[in-house]
Write a protein that binds this DNA or RNA. Structure first.
Lengths: 314, 314
DNA sequence: GAAGATTGAAACCTCAATCTTT
DNA sequence: AAAGATTGAGGTTTCAATCTTC
């Protein structure tokens, strides 16, 4: 943690400097007589040809009220033309006019010139580092922001139906349907009671409720329990699945850590798991966490559809 | 140039993403109930102990009107206390109160946590790249912004006195005073007439006038002329000096390029120059531009104080 | 007059409320 | 009621004008 802090402080400082230098806080650029948001909007519309106005808030990461005002101004300046959608009279489809395309070309040239001038004094290696660093950090911040909207907690009785749906939705995505897969287990319908024992546990990942939404939606889960027909010291990591929206956010790692912790507290000495070779993300996670591949399965789970087996000490 | 554009477009995209993700556009952070600028102001005051309010615009890179309003709010919230300077009743010296120090501690912890969370999912190499990239780009943008406030043009008669002052100020900074140095040359007092010949040229670097300032202030210069007692094909790069404010911005490179160009047009075949070993930045520039060191001087410049000689073909 | 600081007007952004169409 | 879009109120920022002190 100390090591990390050594990087955090200078990074925060560099971020502040960078944002100021990029001038995103300035209202209007004198060369283009447009704010950054207006430019960004023109660029996004240009890049997509035609954009529903309802998409703009996501693309620009601005409030819909702001994008509404931006569109109003761009229309009044004659750079954007809106037509209502043929399917839905509420929706407005935005496209650039001829003048708009000319303007966005000018905006691009100006921006390219400015960035080029700054890069000019750098070596090839430095330019490479700048680009990589910016991209990595932007992605990391996005992941972290998205991660923050989810929570992990032990499963409750009320999650029963949602967990069943989760398992029955995700497994077939990887071709795991029919006999020989965990999807056929009787416990799927009542995971809460199946994992409430002293030496078992099941955790769920829930999405924070947005305004007016149903709260506590289950979007992932995973747990552990004694390995069927295994010895007393061996548990199995079971039914760890996530909907696509939570993948790649590092939540699998956190859930796995909780399972490892729980298994240790339940006095298990080894954790075993069965999965599919084609579940690449999952297998990479297991391998990062010290799981070693086995040639043959342990115990008698009855999941003869699985083709990949791992174990690690606790 | 095409190569460079390949990097410019993704870099501009990454910049937009990054700024959005960093949330510098959001007004207020819910955790701290403070805007980024307010936090930044607290941090800067904390880091320096006591700050004249007049320094804040530079530190935060905001308008003085904005910083004035920020200070007003921080004072009314009891985090900052101002006292008038003992030397100057106009100036206000800002310091944190006890409550202010507590608040800035909280702000730091929150910000560190957020950044740490984002960095957590990265490898050591990736973290390194992020930090390096951000720092390099921030510095490059700063250089480029500062560079844009200067211009290079051929010397005019009216620059005479300013150029003489430039030479007489910069040379002694490197210990080059007294006989044996160019500073004693008679031409120093009238560089304009000394370099108006057909095979000579002198360029000046001028600072753009800010509001209400004298325009066209000379902050650097350099030129070329036939080498004294040299052959017809050899010219000398002469009296290239810059005030500290323009150093490190790549302007030396631009001025040198103009001199090389001018010398070629004047049908010179070689450019020679004399300098001092201790002028590291200058020598690095010459070496980057293909100048090779000589053991002994060429011609008879009379500058026996110089200890470093270079030449290159044109 | 110049430097330090404040104040008024206007641009940009967000949140919340509202209007229109489905 | 819900989704697309707009409008009103308030915070942040800049530019320009102003006030105070040197």
């Amino acid at each position: 943690m100390q090591r990390m802090l050594d990087e955090v402080l200078p990074l925060r400082h560099a971020s502040r400097e960078l944002v100021r230098e990029l001038g995103f806080l300035q209202a209007r650029d004198s060369a283009t007589s447009l704010s950054h948001s207006h430019c960004h909007a023109l660029i996004e519309i240009e890049g997509r040809g035609s954009v529903p106005q309802s998409e703009l808030p996501k693309l620009l990461r601005l409030d819909k009220s702001t994008t509404s005002r931006i569109v109003t101004e761009l229309e009044s300046r004659g750079w954007v033309k809106a037509r209502s959608s043929p399917e839905d009279a509420r929706a407005r489809l935005l496209a650039l006019t001829h003048a708009g395309r000319a303007k966005v070309g000018y905006v691009h040239r100006e921006a390219n010139l400015r960035v080029s001038r700054a890069l000019e004094t750098l070596t090839d290696d430095e330019r490479r580092t700048v680009l990589d660093g910016m991209q990595i950090y932007a992605r990391a911040l996005e992941r972290s922001r998205r991660r923050a909207t989810y929570a992990i907690r032990p499963m409750k009785a009320g999650d029963r139906d949602e967990v069943a749906t989760l398992i029955r939705t995700v497994m077939p995505e990887f071709g795991a349907k029919g006999p020989g897969y965990a999807i056929e287990d009787a416990e799927v319908d009542d995971m809460f009671n199946a994992y409430r024992g002293a030496r078992a546990g099941y955790f769920v990942v829930t999405r924070e409720a947005k305004r007016g939404e149903k709260s506590d939606v289950v979007v992932g889960g995973g747990g552990f329990a004694p390995l069927v027909s295994g010895d007393d010291g061996t548990c199995e990591l079971r039914k760890m699945y996530f909907y696509p929206e939570v993948r790649g956010l590092g939540i699998g790692q956190e859930l796995l850590s909780l399972c490892l912790e729980g298994a240790r507290r339940a006095k298990f000495e080894r954790m075993y798991l069965e999965t599919l070779k084609k579940m690449d993300q999952a297998r990479a996670l297991y391998e990062r966490n010290g799981f070693v591949p086995l040639e043959r399965p342990l115990g008698k789970t009855g999941h003869y559809g699985c083709d990949s087996f791992y174990v690690r000490d606790l």
